[in-house]
Amino acid sequence: MSDTPTIRPVGEGALLIEFGDRIDETINAKVVALDKALAARPPRGFLEAVPAYCSLLIEYDPQSTSQVELAEAALELAGSAPAAATSGREHVVPISFEPLDGPDLDQVAAQAGLDWEEAIAAFLASRYRVYMYGFAPGYAYMGGVPQVLQLPRKPIAQRGHPAGSVIIAGPQCLITTLPMPTGWWVIGRTPLAVLDATGERPFRFDPGDTIRFERIA
């Protein structure tokens, strides 16, 4: 894909700026760079931006700007914003792999052809990049699950996993903030709250940050 992003309308009040169509650190770095440029130099009518894996949504007020004007401003900012490879902070996230906390770890290990301890070692050896938040409050989508542990999601979502569950599917990993049914594999649980509803900084991570997991049980 060329460096010029594709711009698509989302209704009359938003544009989707696409830098690619896959989960990739270089593409996501461009998303993060444009997001920062927009925050530093918001164009007229700009309301809010939503960074995702390989695209950025810009919501604007169509009463005070036009789609064309906003698209031109976004292209100019995207062209001038340097995409830094590593721009974020690093976080250490404690994780327990006890069977009650990670009920699917057995199955994940078996499908990977590893024993339980080998699967844990493989998971802990990787560094995880926060690509985006999505779905619901505080759901930080990370990439970096090692190849050997990458499994397609389960065919049916299963109920009853508590907030703080560490779940994986394909290359993606996330820490849940709500008790929700999920088709992802539940491999552990963290006492660390990504979403702290009453805290001064309610969301712990930013897109572009790096996560390292540290075993506590």
């Binding site: 989302v10 209704g11 009040g13 938003a14 989707l16 169509d21 896959r22 989960i23 939503v50 995702a52 894996y53 390989c54 695209s55 950025l56 949504l57 919501e59 985006m132 938040y133 999505g134 779905f135 619901a136 989508y141």
Partner: peptide
Amino acid sequence: PSEPALPGCLQITGDGRMTMLLADHQT
């Protein structure tokens, strides 16, 4: 890959069914 969404978006699931997203939409 997951893309941002807004109220009003007409999302189509694998079985071809349509949902209009509303105020509490998945982001």
